[in-house]
């Protein structure tokens, strides 16, 4: 990953915000709560509004806010491009994997009821949890990836 960290440090989104103390302090304080809220939305989706997609977008928004305030390179160090690339595929793979698992257990693709041998409703719970997690992972990393793609490019 040295090629990435050692590369050009400018980002096209040249923002004065990085020099503003208030934004830096408030942003730094807010980012953890945004990420925590994303996890709440992710795992509370069974009971209230929200789910994998919303959680992924909020998580990515928190990460992007951090990048806007502290620079793209900070985020690239924390989440290298390789991790993003793996994460994008991992989420979709988890989703598909749950489907294949239910096939292997003798039912149809994405029929979560069989995931728990005793109670189909428990199987549904587990299946929805995993599937939503897969959506969340993919959406988070896709948003970060698109942000990298845009922000990592400079004016031609």
């Amino acid at each position: 990953m040295s090629e990435l960290t050692a590369q050009e440090e400018t980002t096209p989104i040249k923002m004065r915000v990085r020099e503003t103390v208030i934004l830096r302090v408030v942003g730094k304080a807010l980012v953890p709560f945004i990420l925590l809220f994303a996890l709440y939305v992710q795992f509370h989706g069974d009971y209230g509004p929200g789910g994998g997609f919303q959680a992924g977008v909020i998580f990515a928004a928190g990460l992007i806010l951090h990048a806007l305030i502290f620079g793209l390179d900070e985020l690239r160090t924390a989440i290298p491009l390789v991790v993003v690339e793996i994460g994008i595929a991992l989420g979709a793979l988890l989703y598909g994997g749950v489907g294949v698992a239910s096939m292997l257990l003798g039912s149809e693709f994405l029929d979560y009821g069989v995931l728990d041998g005793h109670d189909p409703a428990h199987g549904q719970h587990l299946g929805i949890l995993l599937v939503e997690l897969g959506v969340g992972i993919t959406v988070t990393f896709v948003m970060v990836a698109i942000f990298y793609a845009f922000a990592g490019r400079s004016r031609q």
């Binding site: 959506v135 896709v142 793609a149 400079s154």
Partner: peptide
């Protein structure tokens, strides 16, 4: 989810995803 994944692949192919700028 696959559509979202495809969007990222498209963005990487078109814009290079930061690997290009390196």
């Amino acid at each position: 989810t696959t559509v979202v994944l495809t969007a990222a692949v498209g963005a990487f192919l078109l814009l290079g995803g930061g690997a290009l700028s390196a």
